[in-house]
Every structure is written in structure tokens, then in C-alpha cells.
């Protein structure tokens, strides 16, 4: 009969209407500022810089190699390389960035900087409440604002951070072993080189 479908549809919406007052499962709305769903581990918003130890300035993993700056498609990373060097996580002397700015009004969250970084220094953040009243200065984050601790990284991306730590530890061990081997070799060399005068002297 004509109009039957309309009545069926009206019954369905009436069920929705009444049901939304009764069952909480029907209402999928999360009332955001008060309630929030936990962020997903794979969520990514804008990049941040990882630092080890408690000192954000000294512990920055970034060595100012400027690969990310060059690879960034929208060119939103600005790096100034330091003149002097400081030791990195493996104890090796490296440059460090005196300026590291990311313009997040330009950043398109592509994650290419993360993929190209050989030092695991730049990672993607999950922080999304970045609204500011100052659209020029407020959206240009400097290295102090970008620096987040390794613990924070573990908190937002636990799996990925664990893998990174293992890799860094391996590299550090390798570097240590290499350094030790080099040191040993140097020592051995030194040891080998030292006795000769002595022998010569002894030959006197």
C-alpha cells in the first residue's frame, strides 16, 4: 500500500529517538573537552625532537645533519648548525642544532623527516591541541618547545620507542665495542710501539 514504507521509516526513527534516551550504547558522541578517547598508538600529528637524560639541551639526539630539512616536502624545518661539538648518546663528538624550528602551520604531517633521520632524533607527536591566538609566532615551534623526553616518547608510542631503544643500544654497544677495539688497537699499537725504543735503549 502507498505510504507503507514511510510509516516503516518513521517507526525506525521513532525507535532511534526513544532508544537514545534509554540505552547509552546508542549515543556514540564523545563530548570532547570533558571526555576524550585515548589517542591511538599510531596516531601522528606534528614532529618533535627526542632527548635523553634530564637536560633537554644537552641530551638532544639531533646532530644537525640537516637531512630532514632538505627532505621536508613543504620546507617547514629550519636548522642552524653549531660551530662546536658535543658528545652524543654514544659518547661520540657531534654537532648540535643551535636553532631547530618547525613551522607547524606549514607542516603536512607526512612523517618523511622521521623516516630519513639516521639518528632517531625526530619523531611524530600525538599532541593535537595546538590552537593559538598568534598565528605567526605561535605556530613556529622552536627547539625548546619541540624537545620531548624519551620517556614521553615511550608513553605515546611504546612499541616503536622500545624498538628504537634496542636499536640505539645495539649501535651504542657496537660503537663501544668498536671504540674499545680501536682503543685496544691503539693501546696495543702504543704498547707495540713503546717497547721498541726501550729495546733499542736496552740494546745500548
Amino acid at each position: 500500500m502507498l505510504g507503507e514504507g514511510i510509516l516503516k521509516g518513521m517507526a525506525e526513527t521513532a525507535r532511534n529517538f526513544a532508544g537514545s534516551f534509554v540505552s547509552k550504547e546508542r549515543l556514540t558522541t564523545v563530548e570532547y573537552p570533558e571526555e576524550r578517547i585515548p589517542t591511538f598508538e599510531n596516531a601522528r600529528v606534528f614532529p618533535f625532537l627526542v632527548y635523553d637524560t634530564n637536560d633537554w639541551e644537552a641530551g638532544l639526539r639531533c646532530v644537525a645533519c640537516q637531512i630532514c630539512e632538505k627532505e621536508c616536502p613543504p620546507k617547514c624545518i629550519y636548522i642552524d648548525k653549531s660551530k662546536d661539538k658535543k658528545p652524543d648518546y654514544a659518547g661520540k663528538q657531534q654537532f648540535y642544532p643551535t636553532r631547530f624550528d618547525i613551522d607547524i602551520s606549514v607542516c603536512m604531517s607526512c612523517q618523511i623527516c622521521v623516516e630519513v633521520c639516521p639518528f632517531e632524533a625526530i619523531k611524530m607527536d600525538t599532541e593535537f591541541e595546538l590552537a593559538t591566538g598568534d598565528r605567526f609566532g605561535g605556530l613556529l615551534l622552536d627547539r625548546k618547545q619541540l624537545a620531548k623526553s624519551n620517556e614521553y616518547y615511550h608513553r605515546i608510542h611504546p612499541t616503536e620507542a622500545a624498538e628504537v631503544d634496542v636499536r640505539l643500544a645495539e649501535e651504542k654497544a657496537k660503537a663501544n665495542a668498536k671504540a674499545k677495539a680501536a682503543a685496544d688497537a691503539a693501546a696495543a699499537k702504543a704498547a707495540a710501539a713503546k717497547p721498541a725504543p726501550h729495546v733499542e735503549g736496552a740494546g745500548d
Partner: peptide, 13 residues
């Protein structure tokens, strides 16, 4: 609010 409830939303609150 009514339309919201029909679509299982909260509507303006």
C-alpha cells in the same frame, strides 16, 4: 535536539 536524537546524537547542549 530532536533530529540529533533521531540520529543517535546529543544535539546542541
Amino acid at each position: 535536539k530532536g533530529l540529533g536524537r533521531i540520529q543517535n546524537r546529543l544535539g546542541p547542549n
